[in-house]
Nucleic acid binder design. Structure first.
Lengths: 177, 177
DNA sequence: TATTGTTATACTCTATAACTATA
DNA sequence: TATAGTTATAGAGTATAACAATA
């Protein structure tokens, strides 16, 4: 990063286009999230986080450890334990000890869990299509995908800025506090 | 195209580009929201919703009614009452009866409220710049703004947010577990 | 009757810290 | 000592329903 960029990052306010873009992005996604969560709760009795966990398990080739499951979905370990406990109580996943590493817990999707995903997915997709994709051209979708993929990867690589000085900091994942 | 648009909207799954775009958007914004909320809480003891309410008041030319203040920020009346109560208790806003309509409550920013916004805004902008804008070109910003403005306006025009008199279409209601 | 806003209440999600157990 | 996960707990956010006051 050049010194000019650094200065700009540190000090300058946002230009009007940036401000408008920022607010449009935040409001649109907020509306989208709200609609999606409403749908998931109504049709599948799931929060979006719970859906993400089930979907990640459904997309994997078997069980995942809690840590693998957490990555990118949840920001605290205890939060994941709580959600996994709810999913287990609902019969959607099972938890058991890992043979490889006896500290780890393996989480696996049950038949009911897979059915729940299948039950909810078409409506989820329909919400996304109706709210997000309907007003966009194919070119828009491609641009948006390119942009947000870049932004996402950029954020993933950023150092945790105001990370709480937890004992023995180190390169911990987002799943830790 | 072998199918009508209506059929596509109702039934078809998302194409791979759409799926990737959807997930990139959701994850990137989730990360951004998380960082923003962390900053607002640390630097200004505010939630993002509270910041939005203060910012809206700061951008208006005077007091707003609860209903005006709620629009686009909050999805339930009681939620706004709760948040406005917190802001009032913190001395950041005042609430009083409206002379025009005696049912309405006028919410106004206090001096401390304006100071809080000013205190928090530079850092907020800095977070947005570092996480969102740094990896984007000017062209990207313009595209993203155009796209998300369209999406936002599209969503605003769709169904009334809290209109849910209809039972879950196509599926039976699931009891809370 | 419809609208504005509040209250009461209950539920969900999240996060910090202390803890156990394995590596 | 470091890592994986759980527990306990506390706090914040949100939503529904009943309610009061005004239009």
């Amino acid at each position: 990063m050049t010194e000019t960029d650094a200065q700009r990052t540190e000090e300058q306010p946002l230009r009007p286009e940036e401000l408008g873009t920022y607010f449009a992005l935040m409001e649109a996604v907020s509306l989208l999230q709200h609609a999606v969560e409403r749908h998931l709760r109504a049709e599948g009795d799931l929060s979006y986080v719970q859906f993400q966990l089930l979907a990640r398990l459904a997309g994997s080739d078997g069980a995942l450890t809690m840590t693998e499951l957490a990555d990118g979905v949840v920001y605290s370990r205890s939060g994941l334990t709580h959600q996994a406990g709810l999913l287990e109580k609902a019969g959607l996943v099972t938890r058991g000890p890992s043979p490889d590493d006896h500290r780890a817990t393996l989480v696996a999707l049950t038949e009911a869990g897979r059915e729940r995903v299948d039950q909810v997915l078409p409506g989820h997709v329909q919400v996304a299509r109706r709210l997000l994709f309907d007003p966009l051209s194919a070119q828009d979708v491609e641009s948006l995908g390119s942009i947000m993929t870049r932004v996402r990867d950029h954020m993933r690589d950023l150092p945790p800025r105001s990370a709480a000085p937890r004992r023995g900091r180190g390169g911990e994942q987002r799943a830790n506090s």
